[in-house]
Design a protein around this nucleic acid. Sequence first.
RNA 1: CGGAGCGUGGUGUAACGGCUAACAUUUCUGUUUUGGGAACAGAAGACUCCGGGUUCGAAUCCCGGCGCUCCGACCA
Length: 412
Amino acid sequence: MKQSFLFTKTRREAPKDEVAKNAQLLIRAGFIHKEMSGVYSFLPLGLRTLHKIVSIIRDEMNSIGGQEVTLTALQDKKVWEATNRWDDTVVDNWFKTELKNGSKVGLGFTHEEPLTALMADHIRSFRDLPRAVYQFQTKFRNEERAKSGIMRAREFLMKDLYSFNVSDTTHQNFYEEAKKAYIRVFDRVGLGGQTYVTFAAGGSFSKYSHEFQTITEAGEDTIYVHEGKRIAVNKEVLNDEVLADLGISKADLVEKKAVEVGNIFSLGTKFSEALNLKFKDDAGESKPVVMGSYGIGPGRVMGTIAELWSDDKGLVWPESVSPFAVHLIALFDQEGTVKKVTDEIYEKMSKAGVEVLYDDRDATAGEKFSDSDLIGIPKRILVSAKTLKSGEVEIKYRQTGKVEMAQLSTIA
RNA sequence: CGGAGCGUGGUGUAACGGCUAACAUUUCUGUUUUGGGAACAGAAGACUCCGGGUUCGAAUCCCGGCGCUCCGACCA
């Protein structure tokens, strides 16, 4: 894409109503736009990064047998009444509205109930199991107080996968596979080094659930990290029993602030019983399906990457989630040679399938460099009269600052 | 939901109750320049969040509303 074509502009300063580093940088670089507190739109650059994150998650969910669907955001209150979660005193962050005919509907904050009801239409026998179904869906949560930029929004994209198994044993097996897939997701998006599988409150069907917590000062959670075992315990559940279960001692734990980028938990048969999702086993006996739930917020992942991978000049995207692979920058000369050569490089790279953002604007060198640093594409290729003297271009890596020269013929 | 603070050109700031609301950035024109947000000249851009009130006079004081931010509570 030519940068002169991009409708977004970079800013020198962040709006004063943003304090969170992730939102400041993402707004300054033109990735997102704040509509109101806790509600953000994604602009071309931001959407490209979001899509990269989504593709990685999709790839890993498919690898464990997930089947993708899209459920509706509008929710029928009937299915929620089945589990007593329509009640505002039980769930306090519902956005509710009504149809012209007066029927009440909710804007989904999660999808256990409707998906369980949907699956009940299709699951009959043990032969229909196991199944895993997921979606990327906009969730609405009427948070009392939005904060931390895009980390805690009122409207946000969420990948939620639900698993359906015949027994606790097969459920546990899938749960472990899902855990591994989650670890791969966070490795691939560049958060692996700072992300810990964290033991958290389980609920009525399992002792623990697992959160994926990324260490950052911007986080809202407090966790206790065991570096040796690469695990952590959420402060909420830290007690002697947990320590004994995990075979660790409190002396080895370090307190850290962290952001919850994903979580997985066992649901048992709570939803399947309430919504009548049953199957016949091989003896012809009717049993409730054993379920699990697995969430990741791609927008929150993006915000977390922005927090972690940034410096005083701007964003520093890992290759896997960068909006473009290459930032091609031309410092025009009077003769027009640089423009001609860079145009050709751009054409060649684009044809070769390289995702390149070409700064073809009539701007000064300093401005182009500053914008490039702010946007944070990992690889910057610079063409100028100076580099062309020796028939070369300059390559600079955003993360390391390393600079190297390359012959024109070797590019694209 | 408790507590605190703040709303001024697109953005960031300034302005004692008193002149045409100032400065920087931004945008546009032109000249010049081309390796880290260059220089010069000219121009554009504001019902000072909204509605009331006090006053000879309100961006400024008072009341109400709306919005934003922060601390706490909450976060299935």
